[in-house]
Design a protein around this nucleic acid. Structure first.
Length: 610
RNA sequence: GCCGCUGUGGCUUAGUGGUAGAGCGGCUGAUUCGUAAUCAGCAGGCCGGGGGUUCAAGUCCCCCCAGCGGCUCCA
């Protein structure tokens, strides 16, 4: 919102001509003296939360009125203050609200009509405080703490199902780190997260200077890892019965359900005008999938119904200072599954199954996970035994947070987090029970008696965002003596190093054999020394390095350095036939998705990106 | 968004007001090599951007941008 404040001896106006936006108004002219005139324009970003903007405007006007010592205010609509106006209906209501709120603060308030051409005469006092221009955005007005009444209670549930005090777990373990974060226990500042340097050094991901903050460019090796992770999620969700869909990234805010769902989450969204429509960019895949569900015929016989989308991308306009590396982005890719459940009972059993998936992903990525379960007091009272069951099954202590009442769309959720190198949680997999969205989006099925039911909906991301998964994996690498990615995610799984030029042909044959066995192999055909080529293979964290020289050609075998078994400066070497090596690698990546090389097979042809 | 720190060839960096220096990488040549850097030569910088102070600015001041730390926040 833009406001131009003029402290005036007097203002008088006369209504000349109606526009099509005009409000109902009978007064032809009016005037006011010894007055603070507030010329106002509502802007499109204000539409997110008009009430907050107006309360900000009231504060601003109050302050200025106090300084110039007047209690007389004229509100004067003045669209010309902004080139990005809010819709007229909203602006009109906003100014009426402003009038009302100022009156409640004991000001004498007059308002000029909205949507008319008016002639006006103004005499500005001209003292230093008499002319003031202000811009009020949502960032200027702190959120009212409606949640202030809600109490949060924390305790730990042990793997045997009994309760324990959080104080007993505040150590340096992963679980302790989670507790400290959740309970706001101060921790010593850490340095730069290790994944930020790794992601660039290894040419996986980089910042994109010509985009917005928190939007990344993915280089071939990083792109491969992304795609493999997407394949991985699909591979666990398809057998579970999820059906993939793809939905738009932007939505029209004039749809009531869309607006409400978007509005609930405040101003951390990308919003923009497209023609005369107010649009938003999705911050999760809920919008599109709920819209599909709204238009579906839902039979109780086909429930639970699991719908899945890899939301490339989801957008969240996080504050600039919060965006960092791959941990917190403004554009990210979220595997997002929604499960329509028959009733609460079914949603609990689906919750259990989906939580199992979440725990499993931690094992598959080699990133240890810790858990916090949150629910409303009511939910916990009714389902304490079920919660115990979850914790017993997990076999690890779980932090429990009880909210005195429901503040979000969910009544229960679990968040699983990996811990980064500085002992800070990276929140990843989650399952949530949503009891609000079905009604809002009019998603329903009918009972036999014709009674409509708005079913509970589970939100589940079995891995958390792809970017955060990579973040957690790289952070984990940073703690290893000999860092290496899981073989199935390594952009190059096998590197062939010919000892000299005369071994290149043999090396090519081996390289082809391995690539034809669904293993990613490349060949260092550069005119470099052995030492150099071996060193570079190490720098690339190649899990299996094959050397081919006279002895190998003669004996028809391969000398393989296995990174996973090596200690720093102590390469572990073993001799294999091609067939044995292929078998070994295939066994290691068994059951995991495969994609071919995204980079050139010949290192001499491989460009450098960073 | 707020407070703080940082920004020098593609990368890592030296340079406290007086002619921008190195290593890696790149290119060229020599070398054809047995497990973490073979040797030599060459090219490459309006020192993040803009403004100011000064005879003189990478260096001091102001504004902006970006990255990181912290705060707030993460639906």
């Amino acid at each position: 919102m833009r406001i131009l404040l003029i402290h005036a001896d007097s203002i008088e106006y006369e209504v000349k001509k109606k526009t099509k936006l005009a409000e109902v108004w009978d007064k032809e002219k009016d005037s006011f003296d010894e007055v603070l005139v507030a010329f106002c324009a509502m802007e499109s970003p204000d539409e997110v939360d008009i009430n907050r903007i107006i309360s900000g405007a009231v504060l601003e006007i109050k302050e200025t009125a106090g300084k110039v010592k007047t209690d007389r205010i004229m509100i004067y609509p003045y669209a010309h203050l902004s080139s990005d106006l809010a819709s007229p209906d909203i602006a009109k209501d906003a100014l009426v609200l402003l009038e009302k709120e100022l009156k409640e603060c004991d000001f004498f308030v007059k308002r000029a009509p909205f949507g008319y051409y008016k002639a006006f005469r103004l005499s500005c006092k001209g003292h230093p405080l008499s002319e003031l221009s202000k811009s009020i955005t949502l960032d200027d007005v702190p959120l009212k703490t409606e949640k202030g009444q809600v109490t949060h209670t924390f305790f730990v549930m042990k793997p045997d199902g009994t309760r324990d005090d959080v104080e007993n777990y505040m150590d340096d373990s992963a679980f302790g780190s989670l507790l400290k974060k959740e309970l706001n226990v101060p921790v010593s500042p850490g340095g730069e997260p290790i994944h930020v340097s790794i992601m660039r050094q290894k040419e996986l991901v980089d910042y994109e200077p010509v985009s917005d903050v928190g939007h990344m460019r993915w280089l071939p090796k990083g792109k491969l890892i992304r795609d493999l992770l997407a394949d991985y999620v699909l591979q666990i969700l398809l057998p579970y019965g999820a059906t993939p869909v793809e939905t738009p990234v932007m939505y029209d805010l004039s749809d009531k359900a869309i607006f409400e769902h978007a509005d609930k989450f405040g101003e951390r969204q990308y919003r923009f005008k497209s023609g005369n429509r107010s649009m938003m960019l999705r911050f999760a895949a809920c919008f599109g999938m709920f819209s599909i569900m709204r238009d579906m015929h839902i039979s109780p016989n086909t429930l639970p119904m699991k719908m899945y989308e890899l939301s490339t991308y989801s957008f969240r306009h996080e504050q600039k200072g919060e965006v960092i590396g791959l941990k917190r982005l403004r554009a990210f890719t979220m595997p997002d599954m929604h499960t329509l459940c028959l009733d609460m009972k079914e949603s609990l059993s689906c919750f259990e199954e989906q939580l199992e998936m979440g725990w499993k992903t931690g094992l598959d990525f080699g990133t240890a996970l810790v858990a916090v379960f949150r629910s409303t007091e009511d939910f916990f009272r009714e389902n304490e035994e079920w919660v115990k069951k979850l914790v017993v099954k997990a076999g690890v202590p779980v932090l429990i947070e009880i909210l005195s009442e429901r503040v979000h769309y969910w009544i229960a959720k679990i968040d699983l987090a990996a811990i980064d190198g500085q002992g800070r949680p990276i929140e990843n997999p989650t399952v949530q029970i949503d009891v609000e969205s079905a009604r809002r989006f009019d998603i329903k099925y009918y009972r036999e008696n014709g009674e409509p039911v708005f079913p509970p909906i589970l939100h589940c991301s079995p891995t958390g965002s792809v970017e955060r998964v990579i973040c957690a994996i790289l952070e984990n690498c940073g703690t290893l003596q000999v860092p290496v990615l899981p073989t199935w995610l390594s952009p190059v799984q096998v590197r062939i190093v010919p000892v000299s030029e005369r071994h290149i042909n043999e090396a090519k044959t081996v390289c082809n054999l391995i690539n034809n066995s669904r293993i990613r192999a490349d060949l260092d055909d550069r005119d470099e020394s052995m030492g150099k080529k071996v060193r570079d293979a190490g720098m690339d964290w190649i899990p299996f390095v094959v050397v081919i020289g006279d002895s190998e050609v003669e004996n028809n075998n391969l000398t393989v350095t296995i990174r996973g078994k090596s200690a720093p400066n102590k390469p572990y070497k073993e001799t294999f036939t091609v067939e044995n090596l292929v078998e070994l690698v295939q066994k290691e990546i068994e059951g995991k998705p495969f994609r071919p090389l995204y980079t050139h097979e010949l290192l001499s042809k491989k460009p450098r990106y960073i």
